[in-house]
Nucleic acid binder design. Structure first.
Ligand SMILES: [Mn+2]
Ligand SMILES: [Mn+2]
Ligand SMILES: [Zn+2]
Ligand SMILES: [Zn+2]
Lengths: 130, 130
DNA sequence: TTCCCGTTTTAGACTTAGTCTAAACTCCAT
DNA sequence: ATGGAGTTTAGACTAAGTCTAAAACGGGAA
């Protein structure tokens, strides 16, 4: 709790009750939640929190570098508390998004593109649990 | 033109004027258009075509294997007439999506995941024109 | 040819993800 | 205590996409 407050302060975010609750839900999450999923989680502990605040806070956390916005599901943005580079596997049956360690895949010289300066990349896999 | 008609017939799609126009726009496109972008293109030659028809037709073409739906831009689905495996680079300045040939990147044994059966994957790069 | 009936198209209602607005609330500094 | 910047809120608004139900189309059968 105090850790969370300090983490927000360190990133120049005023730690309000609503922001702490959104941060708690999103930063602890393993499963790349959408904003409305975070809202549903947050409502149980913070019953008057509004949709606007959840969207605002998630966008603020992303802007301040505590979360990454990702485009992995059709039509919605998901939020990812894991900041270090990694890949994603989307379960074709359940839709769940799983993290794949960066080092578990060897990729050749991808930055060596003649036409573009490659700033960053990731692999998106699709599959199902064995 | 006759080619397009035959292509639709081969895929059990009745070639109507509207479908031919949507197919012409989407299949010829190099730039991964959204449904509303296809609608805008189609309207110039087929001024009464409706949004519903464009969405229906794009989804039909995807279902029949003439197009691939892709999740590459936040909040919208784009349609890709290029059926063979390839990667994508998103220009961080313009948002344009560029195709990257499959063979231009060497990826190690990605199918060898202990927990999942990997059905398919692609690399999403971000960068900007040199 | 004309007619018929299944297929297709259409406008617009509806849904969902997300942003914006403006009023109300909070809470720290004076 | 009071003021004011910062925050939260409900609800309006927008944009992507689906659905509905009526109208239009069109390829055979007669
Ligand atoms: Mn569009
Ligand atoms: Mn949207
Ligand atoms: Zn992740
Ligand atoms: Zn492509």
């Amino acid at each position: 709790m105090q850790d969370l407050i300090n983490m927000l302060r360190d990133h120049k975010i005023q730690p309000t009750a609503q922001r702490l609750e959104v941060a708690r839900c999103a930063l602890a999450s393993e499963d790349h939640p959408t904003a409305d999923e975070v809202l549903a989680m947050a409502l149980s502990r913070c019953p008057t929190i509004s949709r606007a605040t959840v969207y605002n806070t998630l966008n603020l956390l992303a802007e301040k570098g505590l979360l990454v916005r990702r485009t992995l599901r059709e039509g919605v943005t998901v939020f990812d508390p894991r900041l270090e580079a990694h890949h994603h596997l989307i379960d074709t049956e359940t839709g769940e998004i799983h993290d794949i360690p960066w080092d578990s895949v060897v990729v050749g010289d991808i930055a060596e593109h003649p036409e573009f300066e490659v700033l960053d990349y990731e692999i998106v896999l699709r599959g199902r649990r064995k």
